[in-house]
Amino acid sequence: MSFEQIVFYFFAAVLILAAGAVITVRSAVHAALFLVLAFFTTAALWLLLEAEFLAITLVLVYVGAVMVLFLFVVMMLDINAAPMREGFARYLPVAALVAVLTVVVMVMAVGREHFGLDQFAAPERMSADVSNTRMLGEQLYTVYLYPFEIAAVILLVAIVAAIALTLRRRPGTRYQSVEKQVRVRSEDRLKVIKMNAEERK
């Protein structure tokens, strides 16, 4: 086994264990942290595929921003796990059936016949000076320009919509008026009075 394969199997094993832990650990915070570990190991696997830009972006976007907000929310929830476990045995046969079906479909869809090495040969190793980032950028901004721009606009609409949902005036809420705060000068708040010293009685 070459060194690269050892690295691959190591990260793949950690990834599978972490992904399994995400759905099996009891605490929601631990589950979120295992998801972070899963993202990290995925990024490592992508690095092995020479997709360094995507790997670093995965860490930057999902680990650095999305999961931080996720943790933020999960940490504030006080989830009682006991009611969620009720009826586990009752639904187990249905769940097992669905799980088996999903696995079968997945194996049929992405199995060896469709994605095996005889269908897709392992890509050639690029030389060290090939810039993954530049190649990706050239593809995105020439061949896939319209899909890229449309995706960007859809995301922008989603952002605006999400912000618009929070814009509701609640009666009785006090708001800061930043303009007034900025315009305040020391004379408005503090008055220095000149007076003679009083004689102590």
Partner: peptide
């Protein structure tokens, strides 16, 4: 590495986990 600035940005954004945890 080619994308060193991106690497810096990605890793510094991970540092916040220490504080949150």
């Amino acid at each position: 590495i080619n994308a060193s600035l991106l690497y810096v940005l990605a890793l510094t954004s991970v540092g916040v986990y220490g504080i949150i945890l």
